[in-house]
């Protein structure tokens, strides 16, 4: 509880500096792998986690004003990615891993009818996007070990 009180301090004495510096922005990418061997997956194997939709319709926006859990969780994943790079212990990595695992399970449920082959493991990596002059640059800052796609303890 003492630690929680320490976490409370930024709320009682906030800095209120929203968007003052536009720092490199994290993207989480996922690759499915068949074995937990250490070699990195091919570049083609990485997929963007939770890509933003092409556009949102008026009804989507009205609903999301009241009910926006997926997007808020996506923002939380970006926060976890930043915390992971700040060496905030095991917690942010575990949060990313558990939520990715749940995403993969729901994708698997949707694709069951298509009988797609299922990978037993996944890895994730953090790519930080920034602007260099007029060009965007992408830096891979972290690549996770392989994790099983199913872990009963996460349920």
């Amino acid at each position: 509880m003492l630690h929680a009180l320490k976490l409370l301090m930024p709320a009682l004495f906030p800095s209120w500096r929203f968007f003052d510096v536009i720092a490199p922005s994290p993207r989480i990418e996922v690759a499915m792998v068949d074995t937990p061997a250490l070699g990195e997956p091919d570049e083609d194997a990485w997929r963007t986690c939770r890509p933003a939709p092409a556009r949102l319709g008026p009804m989507d926006r009205i609903v999301s004003f009241f009910w926006n859990p997926h997007w808020n969780e996506t923002l939380y994943l970006a926060t976890c990615a930043e915390r992971l790079m700040q060496d905030a212990g095991e917690h942010p990595g575990r949060e990313i891993r558990r939520r990715l695992r749940r995403d993969l399970a729901s994708q698997r449920d949707e694709s069951q009818a298509a009988e797609e082959p299922r990978a037993a493991y996944f890895r994730f990596r953090l790519v930080f996007v920034s602007r260099q002059g007029e060009r965007l640059r992408r830096d891979v800052a972290y690549v996770s070990p392989a994790y099983p796609t199913v872990d009963p303890q996460d349920r």
């Binding site: 536009i22 933003a52 092409a54 556009r55 997007w71």
Partner: peptide
């Protein structure tokens, strides 16, 4: 930059 590369814009549009 917020629109160009931050994680915040809600859609590609």
């Amino acid at each position: 930059d917020v629109f160009l590369f931050s994680a915040y814009p809600v859609s590609a549009a």
